[in-house]
Design a protein around this nucleic acid. Structure first.
Lengths: 208, 208
DNA sequence: GTCTATATAATGATAGAC
DNA sequence: GTCTATCATTATATAGAC
């Protein structure tokens, strides 16, 4: 379950640069991160970054690609069996959390998000079969909102941490968040009647 | 319900600058937005921006402050009566949506988030009274996660729009999102049994 | 209050040696 | 593959006139 993190010394310069970029982009955001700072963290020169990646933009794309490759297996395995497991990427994505959160918020990492939607849609299509009331909206749209909600603790980690009183990357934080999620996911916010009523109100508004 | 948007011509230069900043920060992010661009949109010179706000950072803080002041009443009114209404800030915050989303993702707008938590906590404390099973976690933590989830469609709007196939700022998008939210909020992801079981697993892990 | 012009610092990009 | 040195751009910050 734990991702193997090789000794930085063992990595090629190219890999070290990419990992440093992942960290800098995650901590400071794309604009504020500098390729100089990344080079320094990686222990290489400015010129070598350029040699390997060409441009800052290309470096980011390499980060995205690496993230996708690394996440692919883990992600699919965790998400398909139950929505509960799949809907907690905070704990799963470990060292990439910050980068992914930044990237998503800035509109990047689209393939990652879309794959979460795809998996969620599969899951919903399956569970819809044994659902008494027919859904009002398509599975894909619901999956998209689920994905956004599932990712929100990561994307808004700074704010949540303020309320929880503990860092989300600490064991205590992870445990607490997990317990909150279990409670939230198992208790609907609205009753079916309230939802139906609100939906009817929307229908009335639509006709006018 | 609709916020009155005065004719730009009627506003003082200071207000025009602030509104332009709100738009630029929201569209391009804080780093990428330039005070030159903001000045141009506001129809004033670069120097005047500096005269009124001193620095880019101070301009941002003025934006945050203005947002808080504007949102305060609207927010409280919508959120207190039912979680359903309160949990849909996407439609409520209109022209400030993009700015708020950017600010939150970058770790700003903390007072806004914290107030959402405060209101949610009140609501949860109230509804907890008539809840059969005692909550495993404190109301504040749950409220924080609720707040993050409620804001996620705004923060991750670009991604959701890709799945919905329509812009979230259009009437159709708002309607669709609202219907999705009604469905999602009224159907738990996990059964109480599944949640209890997962919780028990966490407890076992805690002891070891 | 509002403008123009300038100073200064930082950064991404480039060229070329070893 | 790796480095140093330099260019060109851009944006903030400043000074000072009207």
């Amino acid at each position: 379950m734990t991702t193997t993190v090789p000794d930085p010394e063992d990595l090629t310069a190219r890999a070290r640069i990419r990992d440093a970029a992942l960290r800098h982009f995650g901590e400071h955001g794309f604009e504020r991160a500098t390729i100089r700072g990344i080079a320094e963290t990686a222990g290489v020169s400015l010129g070598l970054v350029r040699h390997h990646f060409g441009s800052k933009q290309a470096l980011r794309e390499a980060c995205d690609e690496h993230l996708m490759k690394t996440m692919h297996g883990l992600h699919e395995a965790a998400a398909t069996r139950s929505m509960g497991g799949g809907l907690n990427p905070v704990t799963a994505m470990g060292p990439y959390r910050r980068y992914l959160a930044r990237a998503l918020a800035e509109g990047w990492a689209a393939p990652f998000f879309d794959e979460m939607v795809r998996i969620g849609e599969q899951w919903l299509t399956e569970t819809d079969k044994s659902r008494p009331d027919p859904p009002d909206v398509d599975a894909r749209s619901r999956a998209a909102v689920f994905a956004a909600m599932a990712l929100s603790p990561s994307v808004l980690a700074q704010h949540i941490e303020r309320s929880l009183g503990t860092g989300l990357d600490t064991p205590e934080g992870q445990d607490k968040l997990l317990r909150v999620l279990l409670d939230v996911y198992s208790h609907p916010v609205l009753s079916l009647e309230e939802a139906a009523e609100a939906r009817a109100a929307l229908d009335r508004g639509r006709r006018s």
